[in-house]
Design a protein around this nucleic acid. Structure first.
Lengths: 236, 236
DNA sequence: ACCTGAACACCGTTCAAGT
DNA sequence: ACCTGAACACCGTTCAAGT
């Protein structure tokens, strides 16, 4: 009767990474320290080094895990039934990737900080390129398209205008706007619009709407270049 | 003869921030520690707290300084002579901002990590909005345009495909491509193109070209929406 | 008012020692 | 083979003490 043995599953690289993802999801990437992770697994921090090279290895590992999640989710998206279907399908794939990333808010920034692209993403981009090729893109145009999409092609954009969850007193807010209107009239106008738009939750923008808007601007633009048989402009 | 007094300029917040920018430029943002910064200024780390609240204050300060540099550089760009000039002028302003950021490689990532947009950028965005408004954009469309441009509107995109300065043996490279071609044929094709393109330095992409390509896709797309009198689609 | 040295609470990581 | 405890070199920051 070896009951005691079963109380704790054996530590593996797999289990360490899974715990790391959970910890980052729940308490933020800054809370992911070797000591905290060890505690989560009922073990001293130093034991982790038996299953993982170092902290950088963990960070690479959890990003790769999320990318694997993306690839799996995107694989479920139905392929286009005709060549012209590349656009809606690509759009859906990107929005699917976005859903995964919204479950792991720490992932985008970490992904950008990595030296190399996670190997699991090769499958993702191979699919994107394939869609465009079958839709009539030259290899060249498909290449530039990937760059033009940038991180949007993976489902995220780092928002520069952060949601100030403005607990600001409305009268104080009005005064600030008044003052700003002198020097920065256009900015003041825009802030008024944003705050008053019934569509957006008061005091912020609808991230999902803005993401899709920008995505469509790019996809439509690429479609037009494909239609016009875009080629590298002659260089001097 | 107070010679000794002049050997060291008095420490000020201004001087601390300037030294911090220089240190980050020269040795990277990770090398910017309180102790290293103190040493650079010939002072103990703890003295810095007399002129600066804490490290977060320094990070906010140096990002704000860079943004101020952007605003100053962009102010030199000539305004359009006719409403239709909004596009080339906006384009030039963005590429000007990009030049500043290329001198401070650490700035984009830090900017994205900040809670709030630096106050010095209000002037920048006020100018961008003004250009679009005079060019015929509705306030609404100008707002979505800012989101669609995202960080590109400030002159940068976090590149996901990092320049592997591939010191890879060509024959090894050929083998890798061969192996990849089986599972990921489109990706393999693209890597061949990129490596062989005479325009790009071998083994990488031309970041500046890709930036301008993506920027033009977006600007052209926005122009078309303006022309078509884009309006918010009716919602259910 | 400004600067200093010692100290504290945290990191990631190494290493010799245990089982 | 796996885990542990003590230790090391680094952080940012506090605080009492100096001038």
């Amino acid at each position: 009767m070896e009951v005691a043995k079963k109380t704790r599953a054996p530590l593996t690289r797999e289990r360490v990474l899974r715990a790391a993802v959970d910890l980052a999801d729940e308490r933020g990437i800054d809370a992911l320290t070797m000591r905290a992770l060890g505690q989560e697994l009922g073990v001293e921090a130093m034991s982790l080094y038996n299953h993982v090279k170092n902290k950088a290895d963990i960070l690479n590992g959890i990003v790769d895990a999320v990318c694997g999640e993306i690839v799996a989710a995107v694989d479920e998206v139905d392929p286009p039934e005709e060549p012209a279907g590349w656009k809606p399908v690509l759009r859906t794939r990107i929005l699917t990737a976005r859903e995964v990333l919204l479950r792991h808010r720490w992932a985008p920034a970490l992904l950008e900080s990595l030296a190399d692209i996670p190997p699991s993403l090769i499958a993702y981009y191979d699919g994107q390129i394939g869609l465009m090729r079958e839709g009539g893109f030259s290899l060249d145009l498909a290449h530039h398209a990937l760059h033009a999409l940038g991180s949007r092609g993976l489902g995220f954009t780092q928002e520069l205008f952060v949601q100030e969850d403005s607990e600001v007193d409305p009268t104080v807010m009005a005064m600030m706007l008044q003052q700003m209107a002198g020097r920065y009239p256009h900015m003041a106008d825009m802030m008024k619009i944003v705050a008053h738009d019934p569509e957006s939750t008061l005091g912020g923008c609808d991230d999902q709407f803005e993401f899709e808007f920008g995505l469509d601007v790019i996809l439509d633009g690429l479609d037009r270049l494909r239609e016009a048989n875009w080629q590298l402009p002659a260089h001097s």
